[in-house]
Design a protein around this nucleic acid. Sequence first.
DNA 1: TCCAGGCGCACCAGTTTCGCG
DNA 2: GCGCGAAACTGGTGCGCCTGG
Lengths: 344, 344
Amino acid sequence: MPTTSAAGDGRRPTLADVAARAGVSVALVSIVMRGAKGAGAATRERVLRAAEEIGYRPDTRARLLRSSRSRLLGVQFGLHHPFHTHLVEGIYAAAEPAGYQVALSAVAPSRGERQAVEALLADRCEALVLLGPEMPVARLADIAAQVPVVSVARRLRPAPPGVDVVRTADDEGARQAVDHLVALGHRAIVHIDGGRAPGAADRRRGYRTAMNRHGLSGHSRLLPGGLTEEDGARAARTLLAEGHRPSAVLAFNDRCATGVLDAFLRAGVGVPTEVSVVGFDDTRLARLAHIDLTTVAQDIPRLAELAVGRAIARLEGERDSETASGRETVIAPRLVVRGTTATP
Amino acid sequence: MPTTSAAGDGRRPTLADVAARAGVSVALVSIVMRGAKGAGAATRERVLRAAEEIGYRPDTRARLLRSSRSRLLGVQFGLHHPFHTHLVEGIYAAAEPAGYQVALSAVAPSRGERQAVEALLADRCEALVLLGPEMPVARLADIAAQVPVVSVARRLRPAPPGVDVVRTADDEGARQAVDHLVALGHRAIVHIDGGRAPGAADRRRGYRTAMNRHGLSGHSRLLPGGLTEEDGARAARTLLAEGHRPSAVLAFNDRCATGVLDAFLRAGVGVPTEVSVVGFDDTRLARLAHIDLTTVAQDIPRLAELAVGRAIARLEGERDSETASGRETVIAPRLVVRGTTATP
DNA sequence: TCCAGGCGCACCAGTTTCGCG
DNA sequence: GCGCGAAACTGGTGCGCCTGG
């Protein structure tokens, strides 16, 4: 019995099966399947037909094993963060045309960044794209010693060798929001912040300096917030309980802003008639007609594209700069004015 | 120059590198790394130290290549669906202790189920767990001919050979919601449905039969909805425009219910004082204090656990039932009463 | 004589180099 | 120089075999 039976024995078909069926060598089938040159048109046709007939599907792992390159991009993302999931979508879109596969590894309450990264490294990813990593810089440096790393949305100063940063100018975004509110006539503007989340420090700084520049340092006020709707709602309830409301609120992100919105609505406080609210990120949430949130947009597709681009650049060019100090790419945010802001 | 230099040449260390450093054979290092028996304590110690020193990390792909088993579970999920991302978290939790790795493949507006499944198959996943698959049954059957498939939350009648189904009793969930509302005194109960989404048909049916059973068939009313906040908000606006509101709304899922909630709030319609609203899924969203949504809970951790369990059962036991007709596991939903329902 | 510890080698499914007609 | 095949190679696994106490 030949070792080349196609189906029936449970094994999935291999190159050898296709080769036997087409009456050619394994090497030739490999050439044809990759679309490489070195095969005649007629043979190529015959091989493809044979592959089709027995339902052959190349084995990624075996393929990667031989070629020194794996063309595999590891992506760590927060499973429950819309900002991350949108980035992931953009990463797929940027990586696949460039001939790179994407390996996802999720971070969730029950699964830490350590596990997520270990899994990606064990899978032989050539480079890692980490979305909003919260691990210590020393750990990032460790990882970067093994494989190029791109940190998205998390600023690092200074970036360790081998780590690139792609992020939005968070301080500038906060400034745009404050400028917009001040132009509308607001003075008492509160910032509900993101605590230790990536980007939060910059947004705080941007908020504070903008307030100062407008001579409103006396009105500057930071309220502890967070990344979730619940954090925003809690902060808003704190404000409501105090009696004297601010006239505007800049929330850490859209989820947080949504919580703020909801708490105000429930308390009968009109938005934007009595309070203006600004979010950050411009996720799908903000665009929903019933939310219609004024927000600072991050250009998510572009962030994704740049992150993939940086990773690939490290892998394909820049051979001598492998240990070069990290490079930082900062893109501009853009205020999107919608329905939650108005004159006081 | 030996082929066994550890670092410096950019290559990541292999078994051979560790072997050379520890002065033993490759086979022995393999044994030690796997924790298999057949190595002495002292040698084991020496090998582990050598591996540690040069930062050796086993290559999953090469390992899987050799062993016929890949112990890899492929999971297709909707990147932007909270219900799915929660399931993914549960799947990690169930798979890793059982010694299975998880390979994620996302479905997004820009990435269809076809691509998602192709990627998983190319990665040599041993079984596929598909979350709320929307592909045609024939396609599911095709895939199941290659590898065991578990469909989560999507009912199939009949399930093709090789496809198991794990789902919540959606009709029963809708019934519980209607019973609850009727017990509170509601009669005009509208269902904003999920169109062609997995589970939507069953929820519609459950709603209708429950209404009939209560003698309310005259009040039965279906409104086209969908899975997102926007869909819910749109449907709610339709209701508001009509002038005569229903006294209660059963939404397809929590996201949809949130949209309904928001539209009502904006129109100044009190919930639950003027209208009661019920969701479905009990995602984190529903539990947020400021949403506090009465909803039909799906036991997500259990669904995840069962899905993984079914996949593993196909792989490890049941050898003779490989082509057995699909098995269906249905678990009970549970109504969680929170703050969005009250007597009319 | 037994057997634990350790080694060599074939093998997994591809890719790549080289040489031949 | 084109079309093709033989064989080496990728990193790790598992079997058979050898050795010494």
